[in-house]
Each structure stands twice: as structure tokens, then as C-alpha cells.
Simulated assay, not measured.
Amino acid sequence: MRFTRRHPLLTAVLLCALAVLAARPADGDGPHAPGHGSVSGISAEVARLYEEAATATERYEDGRREAERQRARAHRLEERLDRERRETAGLREDLGRIASSQYRDGGGLPLTAHMLLADDPDELMRGQRAVQQAEVSLDRAIDRSERAEARLARDEARAAAAWRRLEKRNAELADLRQGIEAKLEAARWKLQGQADASVAAGACRGAVRLDQPETRFTSRWVAPVETYELSASYGSGGARWANRHTGQDFAVPIGTPVRAVGTGEVVKVSCSGAFGIEIVVRHAGGYHTQYAHLAAVAVDQGDRVTPGQWIGQSGTSGNSTGPHLHFEVRVTPEMGSAVDPVPWLARHGVSL
């Protein structure tokens, strides 16, 4: 009590400091705290799993396409093998017909007897030579066909074996991909839980600096997300909005990296209200872009951003009925100045 009476100003300062400390998140929940449960840990894990899932999917799709090519090759070889076998059977039938014809024409008599009985020995000799040449040609054709058949059978067997190996590998890749996607889905909702807690508290946890992949964009403007489905469009009506929808929605899973559409400066990072976690970026020419309903942010106010740079991760925070990115283009940083973002992006060379 004596301390309070003698130092009233110091006491007030200490009480304020204690209040600030109490309002801060615990060490285990801080933006840069180590551990699996921290916002930085979950954001980084989601980003890592997102990339791993994309890589696993790409490998699986490459393997599936290669398996299809091998299966098609084996099928083509099998068809060629069937044709070769039919041709060989036909050649054998031709050889049999020649032999049968010779027998019917007295093929069992010696050539000398044939010549004595023939009306024109020279014509007989020419006929004999023709028959012999036909037999030789047929023998050679059959031999070539048999060699081709054996070669095709070996190739078909190799192609079929390669296809079976690829099918087995693709089954393993599918299992790997499913495992990654299951982990990613669990991490996504954990990240969203942290986002909801931030919005409820009305305070952002701070930027999570994500390890971004090496990208070199040749254009000055890009889409805000890489893979997406367009959902609610600008100007559409609905019970969720007071008037009309003021942006373009991109349906994407929680944790999808959100990209700056162009060069600019972050002028707002907010974690409260109908938009949930949102970022506003100012671009040259006075236009501003807004990225809302996020699950996490990767930039702070005042940061400079470049086209395609990851600035956050999508979510379903605030007034949202499901995971998506709400994207706006405004002529001021504030609400009420939005323009249709689709033609705006199109004028900048980005077709959605």
C-alpha cells in the first residue's frame, strides 16, 4: 500500500503494462513461436503441404499419362502382332495351295517325264521356274513374317511389363498423395481455427514470412490465385451482402497461397469485421486491391510487394459461407469505391 501511495504514476504505468501483457497471445501462440501449434508453424506447414500435394499430384498425373502411353503402345503392338500372325497364316495357306496344285498337275512325276509328255517343253520349264520362284518368295516372306512376329511379341511383352510397373508405381503415388492431402486438410482447419480466434479478438497475429517458390513472372499483372473456380461475381445479389457483391470470389481451399496481382504497397492489414482477415494493396495509378476472408497474412502494413508474391493464405474468416478468396479492385482504400475486377484485370492482361 505504501508503494501505491508514494508512486501513483508508476503504479498506473505498471498496471497498463500488465494489461498489455495479458492481452498479448501466449508464447506458444505468437507469430514466431516455435512448435507445431503456432500460427507461423501451421501457416508454414500448410504452405509446405500445399506444395507437396501439388508436386505429388503432378508426379501422379505424369505417371498416369506415361502409363496410358505405355498401355496404348502395348495395345498397338498387340494389334500389329495379330495382323502379322494372320499374314503368316495366309502365306502358309498360299504355300499349301502351290504344293497342292503341283501335286494335282503331276508333281509326283520326274521333270524329265514332264518334258517328254509336254507339248511345249520350253513353256513347261518357264512354268517350273515360276513355281519355284513363287515357293522361294513365299518361304522368304514366311521367314520374315515369323521374325517380325517374334520381335513384335518381345516388344509387346516389354511394353505390357512397363505398363504394369507404371500402374504399380502410380498406385503408390496415389496413396502418397492421399496421405499428404489428409494431413493438409487437417492443417488447413487448424489454421482456420487460429484465424477465427484472431477475428474474434479483433487483433492480427502478425505476418508469417512464408518460404516462397522461385517464380519469374514475365507479365506485370497476375491472377490473385493460381488454380481456382470463379464463384460469386461483382454486382451479384444475395442475403449475405447489404447491397450488391462488391468483388469477385475465387473458390479455393483453405491455405491456398494468395498472390499480389501487381507491384504495390500494403496499406492495410485488418483482422476484424465482415471481411475477416484482409489485406489492401495500393498500386500505381491510384487503384487498390483487396484480398479478404484470409486464414493468414504473410505481409505487414508498409511492405512493398511484387507481382505473384505470396501475401497471405486463403480461408473463410469473417462473413463467409465457405473457403474462398474475396478479391476487390477499388479507386480508394476504403469500401464503397469498388469497380468490377474482372474487366479491370483483363485490361491489365489477366484473363480469368
Score class of each variant (00 low, 15 high):
Leu10Cys: 01
Ala12Lys: 13
Val13Asn: 15
Val20Glu: 09
Leu21Tyr: 03
Ala22Val: 06
Pro25Ala: 06
Ala26Gly: 14
Asp27His: 14
Gly41Leu: 07
Glu51Gln: 15
Thr57Trp: 11
Arg65Val: 11
Glu66Ala: 12
Glu68Phe: 08
His75Glu: 15
Leu81Met: 13
Asp82Arg: 08
Arg83Ile: 01
Glu87Arg: 11
Asp94Leu: 09
Ala99Cys: 03
Ser101Ala: 11
Gly106Thr: 04
Leu109Tyr: 13
Pro110His: 08
Ala113Leu: 08
Ala113Trp: 04
Met115Ala: 13
Gln128Trp: 10
Ser137Ala: 10
Ala162Arg: 13
Leu166Ala: 14
Arg169Thr: 10
Leu176Tyr: 08
Lys183Ser: 11
Glu185Arg: 10
Gly193Phe: 01
Asp196Ser: 02
Arg216Glu: 15
Ser219Tyr: 07
Arg220Ala: 14
Trp221Val: 07
Val222Ala: 02
Glu226Met: 05
Leu230Tyr: 08
Leu230Arg: 15
Arg244Val: 10
Gly247Ile: 05
Asp249Ala: 02
Val252Lys: 10
Gly255Leu: 02
Thr256Gly: 00
Ala260Asn: 00
Val267His: 00
Val267Met: 00
Cys271Asp: 06
Ile279Gly: 10
His283Gly: 02
Gly285Val: 09
Gly286Thr: 00
Tyr287Pro: 12
Val305Leu: 06
Pro307Val: 04
Gln309Cys: 03
Ile311Val: 06
Ser317Glu: 07
Asn319Ala: 10
Asp340Val: 05
Pro341Ile: 03
Arg347Trp: 12
Val350Leu: 06
Ser351Asn: 10
